[in-house]
Design a protein around this nucleic acid. Structure first.
Ligand code: MN
Ligand code: MN
Ligand code: MN
Ligand code: MN
Lengths: 219, 219
DNA sequence: TTAAACTGTTAGACTAGTCTAAGAAAGTTA
DNA sequence: TAACTTTCTTAGACTAGTCTAACAGTTTAA
């Protein structure tokens, strides 16, 4: 079954909301907000997706992806992250530019294209933001990770990803000299506002809690 | 001005018709046929394109691209042929598979993507079918070429392109051992039906006039 | 336990892109 | 030139995706 550009975006958003907000139930309003449409619009589309058995959904009830819907969503996510990797690795895009273009490229329909792209890139397991790339079977490597804000004083850790994918945040983080695989030493943490003093290479930086909560690390 | 997927296809088709049928005037019916829509549909779209100053067109008159329309058309063609080259050169696609996927990729909006792709491919002047790729300024290398059917008996020539881009034709031609840059010797031509006996490498082939008329060569 | 606030649904309208059916204009031919 | 054929245009209808405005159901909290 070939889905429209729009249907794919709804499924992808539902999937992303469900993994981000773990246990939380997804409602019309949240979905609409994520997609940048009005609740009425999302409601209309949900009826259509239900009709096509892509979501499970009853009036006033919570929204869940069907098996097929979930599979489709993962396929789109796979394409999105492969394209992001391509743009970053092969076409000299910076990590804050890739998302917008991948939003378009993720909708190109061609089995062969996806598989050849994956091969061309050497079957990457993570995209340039540290997010896992689903393989052909829809499986993703789950990497244990914490936010930098959870790391205690005096501890070393390594950056492995970001929670906030906005280009504003990515640009800021990049400018600080942070990025995937960068080693970080937590020097001190302010009691009052959780401001963090960290050491990155030979630089010492002060970052807000808003920032440290959006950086993923492993110890 | 950002155009829709559909508007881009209308402009591209108008441009392609105008270079293929050289002097011939383009009408609603032809345009509709090329795009696979009904004449009424094409007529509706022409009114919209005229409104946006992308085509010059008066009721019952002939259709011409405006400067802006032509520029847009060439941009799409540039993207189409760069993507075809990418798929062929980097992703192991065969020359009969690339067109369909490029039809989708040609609509991705990103200046940087096009320019980086061009750079990544080494600024190619021709696509895998031998068609010229417009450069950033919209200029194309014009290569003098004849159809194989115009080559006299006993003459050597080199294949540089195809007129028919259908995958059926491309597959057939490929199976015969023909392709871009292949050397061809015209051994003999039948008076009756213009069937051609040609030598390609150590092979001798017999091809119909329909076939030889769709192969471009240089002497 | 009822009022207020929030969340979700419906009705009706709009645009882009398409169609069919009908008719008008232009071109061709007897 | 009149009749026929072809090409082009219009009118009206449909789908996908969106909106606003109004209303209905659910949750919260006094
Ligand atoms: Mn992304
Ligand atoms: Mn998308
Ligand atoms: Mn092509
Ligand atoms: Mn196209």
């Amino acid at each position: 079954m070939v889905l429209t550009f729009t249907e794919e975006n709804y499924l992808k958003s539902l999937f992303k909301i469900s993994i981000e907000n773990e246990n939380q139930e997804v409602g019309t309003t949240t979905l609409a907000a994520v997609l940048g449409v009005k609740a009425a619009t999302a409601n209309d589309m949900l009826k259509k997706l239900k009709e096509k058995d892509l979501v499970l959904y009853e009036k006033y009830g919570k929204i869940t992806l069907s098996i097929v819907g979930r599979t489709k969503a993962i396929e789109v996510l796979r394409k999105h992250r492969l394209w992001e990797t391509f743009l970053y690795e092969k076409l000299e895009f910076s990590w804050d530019e890739i998302h917008a273009v991948a939003e378009q490229l993720e909708h190109i329909q061609s089995e062969k294209l996806v598989e050849q792209l994956d091969k061309f890139l050497g079957y990457p397991a993570f995209d340039p933001h540290g997010d896992p790339i689903p393989n052909q079977n829809g499986e993703m490597k789950v990497q244990f990770k914490e936010t930098l804000s959870q790391i205690p004083m005096g501890t070393n850790c390594k950056m492995v990803g970001v929670k906030d994918n906005s280009s504003a945040f990515l640009q800021y983080v990049g400018k600080l000299g942070l990025g995937i695989n960068v080693d970080i030493l937590v020097v001190s943490i302010q009691d009052y506002d959780a401001m963090m003093l960290i050491e990155v290479g030979d630089q010492t930086l002060t970052i807000s809690s808003k920032c440290s909560e959006n950086i993923y690390v492993v110890q």
